[in-house]
Design a protein around this nucleic acid. Structure first.
Lengths: 140, 140
DNA sequence: GGCTTTGTTTTGACAAAGTCTAAATCTTTA
DNA sequence: TAAAGATTTAGACTTTGTCAAAACAAAGCC
């Protein structure tokens, strides 16, 4: 992300230490959970409340500055790579999460047709599998 | 589902009133949540504990008799249409969930390639949109 | 049919993730 | 620099689901 403070201002959001620190943390640790990020931010600026982490992640996600992903059996994770409709690859046993380019055509991949009268706006894809480390430790 | 009792026996599961009632409820109300199902079962056989609903759904899912789906911002939902790798279409505002046939090729659609050394076993697709009822009520 | 073993169901406490509210504090802007 | 408005904080609360132990029921055996 170019300049976090400028990004905030562009979205009419007051620039606060908490928001800058959360943005830095997400940028440095993509796919981290709210709790992970809270710890990172505390290492960075000393302290932040749990609620503020949720507040910041909430508004930044609403504004489209961050993207929230919510795989099954995992708390929500956040990333700042947005607008390119990429997907995710998640390890079933440790939760490790990696980006995967859109497999089929352009964004929004899997062309948004209509079904049952729904107006479809996104096709979310999660690839489930086992990461290298977990493959090793499970094979016994 | 052909014969729920037979299905249970085929999987070496003792046949109980609770299991039969949960199977009936899932069959009659696909994509219902655990709480929904508990209510349905109570209407059906009079009573069941919350924990038993979770127990039954858990073992039946583990055995592959049911499938659990966990869209973001929704409690888990269950269905008994299994083995055909279909996907889901979820309404962002009311949670209504519909089945969608696999969009791309055979099951597991979106051929399981390898990425980052992961061994991929499933490609889960969720189409997000707005159902007809919510389109109407929001347009104002 | 009655008994034993094994597995299921129930109850109640607990845990994780996130939301709500009101008071205190900080940003912005004039 | 001060006022207005938004953000941050603390703490209670909610939802969804799990754990553990005791009570109970199903299946097989005599």
């Amino acid at each position: 992300m170019r300049d976090p403070a400028a990004t905030l201002r562009e979205h009419d959001l007051p620039v606060t230490a908490q928001r800058l620190a959360v943005l830095r943390a997400v940028s440095r640790h993509p796919h981290a959970t709210a709790d992970d990020l809270a710890e990172r931010v505390r290492d960075d600026i000393g302290a932040i409340s749990r609620q503020s982490v949720y507040n910041v992640l909430g508004v930044l996600t609403d504004k489209g500055i961050l993207r929230r992903i919510q795989p099954a059996d995992s708390p929500a994770r956040y990333e700042d790579r947005i607008g390119d409709n990429h997907h995710h690859l998640v390890c079933r046993s440790c939760g490790r999460t990696e980006d995967v380019c859109c497999a089929v055509g352009e964004a929004p991949c899997l062309k948004a047709h209509t079904h049952h009268g729904f107006k479809i706006d996104e096709a979310e894809v999660i690839y489930w599998g086992t990461c290298p480390a977990c493959q090793k430790s499970k094979r016994s």
